[in-house]
């Protein structure tokens, strides 16, 4: 199939960006979006042009490295699917597809379609970890966790940290990410001693670089891990709890 790719080109974080159009011929509709970019880059390199920079790693939707904005929608037209699992069959033959980096004030463009998402890492530094000396593995039944709770924690832990929620949010909020990262720890008993300070620390780190949440819900439409809005309510609940309780635990 034949596509016109209108791609955001930007040489550095400081440089001004612009759109450039490229014609992509001979890509199959079974190609993923990133494979189409690979094919385009092969052509660009062959003709002595600078290839398009973009992030990718596993290409099977579990690493959270990839992420481009396709026709204004983070990751692409298929909901809850990362860029690497978006296929060209979503586009009609001969159409123009606009590719931009993830857009947010907290995600400065590194080059072309690649952005710096280390703001998310700084939220994790704010408290998204467990400071316990794990030692040797304890007995499987030492900590009683119901199946339902374990599953809920795992569902929140499914977040791959791609940052699409931030790019989808009109407010540039990272609440869905932070909520998922907070709740998957909070639900488990081994993390309780830091429960309060974790909520405070992560919220503070989040507010420093990201916007406030207005429960708009655009984030859950694009999240490749299917994190529900409940994560955001959980984040608010934990913060409220820590304020009312005033303790580290």
């Amino acid at each position: 199939m034949k596509l016109t790719l209108k791609i955001w080109r930007q040489d550095s974080a400081q440089a001004a960006g612009r759109f450039e159009s490229y014609s992509l011929d001979g890509a199959g509709e079974e190609f993923t979006l990133l494979e189409a970019l690979d094919k385009l880059n092969d052509t660009l390199v062959e003709t002595g042009q600078v290839p398009v920079s973009f992030d990718s790693d596993c290409r099977e939707g579990i690493c959270g490295s990839c992420g481009v904005t396709v026709d204004g929608v983070p990751h692409g037209p298929i909901a809850n699917t990362p860029s690497c699992r978006q296929h060209l069959r979503s586009f009609t033959d001969g159409s123009t597809v606009t590719l931009e980096p993830f857009r947010s004030g907290a995600f400065p463009v590194v080059r072309d379609l690649a952005v710096d998402r280390s703001g998310l890492d700084r939220i994790i530094e704010g408290g998204g970890y467990v400071s316990i000396d794990a030692g040797t593995a304890t007995d499987a039944d030492a900590h009683q966790v119901s199946h339902e709770t374990a599953e809920a924690a795992l569902d929140f832990a499914a977040c791959i940290g791609c940052g699409a929620c931030v790019a989808a949010c009109p407010n540039g909020s990272a609440s869905l990410f932070t909520g998922a990262k907070l709740m998957h720890l909070t639900l488990l008993p081994t993390t309780r001693q830091e429960r309060g300070q974790r909520a405070v620390g992560m919220t503070e780190a989040m507010d420093e670089e990201f916007g406030p949440c207005s429960v708009i819900g655009e984030c859950v439409e694009v999240c490749p891990a299917g994190i529900p809005l409940t994560a955001i309510a959980g984040l608010n609940r934990e913060k409220l709890r820590s304020v009312l309780r005033g303790k580290a635990s």
């Binding site: 026709d71 204004g72 929608v73 931009e100 857009r103 947010s104 004030g105 907290a106 989808a168 949010c169 009109p170 407010n171 540039g172 909020s173 670089e209 990201f210 916007g211 406030p212 207005s214 429960v215 708009i216 819900g217 655009e218 439409e221």
Partner: peptide, 23 residues
């Protein structure tokens, strides 16, 4: 104001009708 600053210069486009009341 904080949301505008955090979002940066490029506004979100093509947001769905489901979020109309929120936006």
């Amino acid at each position: 104001r904080r949301a505008r600053v955090a979002r940066g210069p490029v506004r979100r486009r093509h947001a769905g009708w489901r979020s109309f009341t929120a936006r």
